[in-house]
Amino acid sequence: MRNLLAILKHSLSISAIVLVGIFVFLKWVLPLFTAPLPMSLIGLYVALTFSALMIFYTMSGASLEEFMGPIHRFLVGEGQEGVAKIARLLLLILFPLLVGWQTYTSLAPSDFPPAESRTIHPAPPGEFVGLANPLQPTEANIQIGKGIYASRCSPCHGSNFDGKGTAAPGFNPPPANFRDSGTIAQLQESFLFWRIKKGGVGLPIEGKPWKSAMPRWEVELTDKQVWQVIMGEYDGAGQSPRTWEEEE
């Protein structure tokens, strides 16, 4: 029992436990409460944890010796006999095979779609930059905007402005959730004006291919209606547009 405790207290054991623990938490425990994390993020967090462990255990000569000493002695194989010797030989054979397998699987053709790094905020064209909403934020304008939103936008963006409209499950990526503080709250009204008017087909050529099913509403709505929809969206989602001037 005392030996087991000593082994568990060793820096190598602690490192292994922490690394495995972080991986298990991110991969299997966290998804019990929220959506699963992509492997790219799990890999990043595990790599950071590994770096932290390396830094901590190489800070002094004593901790370095405790951490690296057993690894060094095991790999060198000095005075090894029995199980330790076989284990070392197995490691020296299996590790290159593992590296080879990883290389093969990462290069071999696959029918699995690759990970995407889609940019989410395209830059608006110059003619839309700096536009200001010409309408007053009156209750009437907001209500008219909400009415248009209900008929044209809510099937996808949801009646609660949360991106969970009845048609939303049919889209990938899903429609934007306006209640999320990372969407319309980060943008000026002129940006929304551009996106609503021009839709997915009006997205700029840089950063293609875009994946947006947003209709080009300029064919159905007037500019005034678009501005009213914007006011209705911000009001309904409980957000404020990004501005650079203090409101009076």
């Binding site: 992509p38 492997m39 993020l41 990970a115 995407e116 990938n172 990526p173």
Partner: peptide
């Protein structure tokens, strides 16, 4: 903000 994710992970 936009994570690198496979189609399945994104879904």
């Amino acid at each position: 903000h936009t994570l690198v994710a496979s189609l399945q992970e994104a879904q």
